[in-house]
Design a protein around this nucleic acid. Sequence first.
DNA 1: AAATCGGGCAACCGCACGCGG
DNA 2: GCCGCGTGCGGTTGCCCGATT
Length: 244
Amino acid sequence: MVQEETRKGPWTEQEDLQLVYFVSLFGERRWDFIAKVSGLNRTGKSCRLRWVNYLHPGLKRGRMTPQEERLVLELHSRWGNRWSRIARKLPGRTDNEIKNYWRTHMRKKAQERKRALSLSSSSCCSTSPNKNIPMDLSSKAKMEEGSSSSDFKDVKGKMTEEEGVKGYPMDRIWDEIASSEEVSSGLGYEGSIEEGSSFTCPPMASPPWDYCFDSLWRMDDEEIKLLVPFSDLSAYNYGHSREL
DNA sequence: AAATCGGGCAACCGCACGCGG
DNA sequence: GCCGCGTGCGGTTGCCCGATT
């Protein structure tokens, strides 16, 4: 018998149902095993991803709240692109979701700044760069010029190879975009996010996290301490079914 | 009304890490 | 110590759909 080719692409409702059923039977582990016994012609990785990003019962749907947006900004300025780590601070949100949010958010910001730059460059000179825009303008301009039809991802790929070597790593650019955004939004994160500081942040509206019994959003002691101002600790006092 | 563009998001890929044999 | 396997993570791609022209 010829082995059927592994399926790729969007999941069907039937596949979702199958996956949910088998996960309920065997738990959130042994994804290869689940992929096999379920009869889904998917890889274990694909099953896991589908579960984590879409089918998990604790997932929150819909737009990010302003509180979540601020938190993402704050945590990204602290940790960089550690999406999974950031996601653990946002119960109900996945790393993928946050990553996507950040990308589009930053793309928007980059476009706005590009617009602002082109406006200011017509009336202003290059000798007195705006202090709120710490980025090397030539690098930035290059970066954005290269983005025909504003396809930022391509630019980013190039930056890591070309610009990055020249001493302007993409991460730094993203950080600077973010930090300038923080400054401009008057949030003044800089002082409060130092390691060991009090890390104050506006309290999040406490969502009904009680249903998050599983381990997607576990956190270690240090992280819990960090988060105490945000939400009632007891919300995280659920049983963990798996170790990390 | 049709074509084009851009944002949002789901999913894939490759690499790294941890663990057991 | 090495190897293979399972899993997690970050980066990237491609599709869908609403907005705009």
